[in-house]
Simulated assay, not measured.
Amino acid sequence: MEPTEPPAGPPGPPQRPGDQSGQGQPSPQYGQGTPPPQYGAPQYGQPDPNQPQYGQPGPPQYGQPPYGYPGGQNQLPPQQQKTSVFAILSLVLGVISAIPFAIIFGIVALVRIPKTREKGKGMAIAGIVLACLWLVGIVLAVAFSDSDPERDASGQVTATADVAPEKLRVGDCVAEVQEGEVQDIKVQPCSQPNGGKVYAVFELPKGSFPGLDAVQASAETGCTDRWKQLREQATDLSDIFYLHPTEDSWSLGDHSVTCLLAPR
């Protein structure tokens, strides 16, 4: 027997039945990688660029608004709410004690604000409250000014107080006498240095207001005559003063004249 020559190289892997060597694609050999993927075909572990990934929004679908535009329409900024002019006027007038106008404008503002949807309800309420506080203060001031001063059993004033001129009596002493219209006058005990003393009080004839000049003339004549009737002599150089009613006080029933002797 002739010796046979061994085959060159290591023996290959056994072929499965039905396989034909040399046909189709060659099997990968040891040390060689897998063939490269075909273009456009997604591989395992690689994201598809056409599909949205987790946590990232995908492209907008047909009929859906784009991102960032709610409702598919641009939203206009809301208009700034205006403040009621009547409310502002009510507050300003309430501060400066224009009582009737502050109350009227405040009520108008409270009625209009629900219809016009304006701001200023609090300002209107504040204006009305301020006007009411001014009104209460005036009423209290008038009430205290109309009260009689403190007197002893003989009728002499015992404490200094501001009183209305019609509250003065004969023998009362005042701190100061001023010319012009007088709303209140300070009365005090005669033991203190005073600016005048009441020596006569009388009433003018009732009826319609005769006019300011006629009232002043009647007051001056009446006070001068009554001083002469007293036949008194002033210890110091003095003048006669008189407090007379005005047209407004006349309409309220004030017809009295108060005569004072005041040192110069």
Rank of each mutant, 00 (worst) to 15 (best):
I107A: 08
R231K: 11
P35V: 14
T246Q: 04
Q32M: 15
Q156M: 06
P26T: 15
S249Q: 00
V163L: 03
Q81Y: 01
Y199R: 09
S238T: 14
K197R: 13
P60L: 08
G196E: 08
L133E: 07
T34D: 10
E181C: 12
F209Q: 08
T160D: 01
L204K: 07
Q43C: 11
A124H: 10
T83H: 00
G195K: 12
N50I: 06
G72P: 11
E166W: 01
P47C: 09
S251M: 04
V157E: 11
G12N: 14
A143T: 05
P47A: 12
A159R: 14
E220M: 01
V111A: 08
E179Q: 09
Q229A: 13
P165K: 08
G22W: 08
K186M: 08
T221V: 00
N74A: 07
E5F: 04
A200M: 13
W250D: 14
P65E: 01
V257I: 11
S249N: 01
E176Y: 00
A153K: 08
V170C: 10
P263F: 00
R169A: 14
P193I: 03
P60V: 11
P114D: 07
G72T: 09
Q43T: 15
T258Q: 06
L93P: 04
G24L: 15
K206G: 09
V85Q: 09
V95N: 09
I96F: 13
Y39P: 00
G120S: 12
I99V: 10
V257S: 09
P49R: 01
R169I: 01
E2M: 14
C190R: 07
E220Q: 07
P7H: 07
M1G: 15
L252E: 09
D236P: 04
V142M: 09
K186E: 05
R264P: 15
A219Q: 09
Q53V: 13
A217M: 01
P78A: 12
I99C: 03
G68T: 10
G31T: 14
Q178T: 10
V163C: 02
D213R: 14
D19A: 12
I240S: 06
Y67W: 13
L168K: 11
I128F: 02
I113Q: 04
V95Y: 08
V177G: 04
A161I: 02
D19R: 11
G33T: 15
I125N: 00
Q178K: 11
